[in-house]
Design a binder for these strands. Structure first.
Lengths: 142, 142
DNA sequence: AAAATATACTTTGATAATCAAACATTATCA
DNA sequence: TGATAATGTTTGATTATCAAAGTATATTTT
């Protein structure tokens, strides 16, 4: 993989993969009654569990100000709730309500289906290798 | 890869990968004088060459209305231009100006660096396998 | 302990991003 | 020719976002 053309090619395929994934996700979300940012927040909370505003903002890759707005809407729609802690009263812990958990499960089902589709066009070995590779990249690069 | 837990795990890693990639890209873009949608449009035009509005909208995964706005801004900032064709006078071909090509090259450099970083933590075989796998998924799923 | 500094979050004000639906223009089909 | 389809723009509304300023609480320094 030292060859420059392979780097070029992999780059182009990664960008294409990213854009396709993004389009796919947006169209899945638009078929629900959630906005894109709301859905992403629910996804993060469902996957990683209750967390404070700062961590949630970090997971979503946006500022805490943006996250405040998103969580406000999730709260008013009853998908999530804020809980303050005794230990540090500045902190708000954000957790999913039952409705939020349900929405997460539903959305996650789409992701699982997509992953299954992907694996269906790969051999068992390729799929296992993909998992290992993505894990490595997630741990070591991002 | 038939095991349900592996599907779960791969799904979670893919989502993490996607979110990390997204955050990375956003922070790269914010260090330039382009907005996120402008940068994405330049990226698509640079990678695939001149195309009409509909194709560009398709590549970006947004409506043509949204694309009109984006291209308006790119044009007013001199990164891209519209050219009408004789063959079909409804069509606008969008192409990068010299300034646009330069911005693309610069942005693409960041992507190439990221890919190199990724490959640096993989063996040659793993990297080649990743390329093949992503290609397959891009062709067959998206 | 008081003052200074840092942290977690919200608010504000502005701009960017987006969609759906209506519209204008040009092509194609019957 | 007239009807239908396709390409792109405009409109009106909503969502998404940031940076910077503000609020409240914790921590550190003197």
């Amino acid at each position: 993989m030292n060859h420059i053309n392979h780097i070029e090619e992999l780059t182009d395929e990664l960008i294409l993969f990213f854009n396709s994934f993004s389009s796919w996700e947006n169209s899945v979300i638009r078929s629900s009654d959630l906005s894109v940012s709301e859905a992403h927040a629910i996804e993060a909370l469902g996957q990683h569990g209750t967390m404070n505003m700062k961590s949630l903002a970090g997971k979503l890759g946006v500022t805490t100000g943006t996250t405040t707005v998103t969580v406000d809407r999730l709260e008013s729609k009853k998908y999530a709730r804020r809980t303050s802690t005794k230990k540090d009263r500045r902190v708000n812990l954000i957790s999913l309500t039952e409705k939020g958990e349900k929405a997460f499960a539903e959305h996650h089902r789409f992701h699982l289906d997509l992953t299954e589709q992907m694996c269906a066009c790969l051999s068992k070995e390729e799929a296992m290798q993909l998992l290992e590779t993505i894990k490595k990249i997630n741990r070591e690069i991002f």
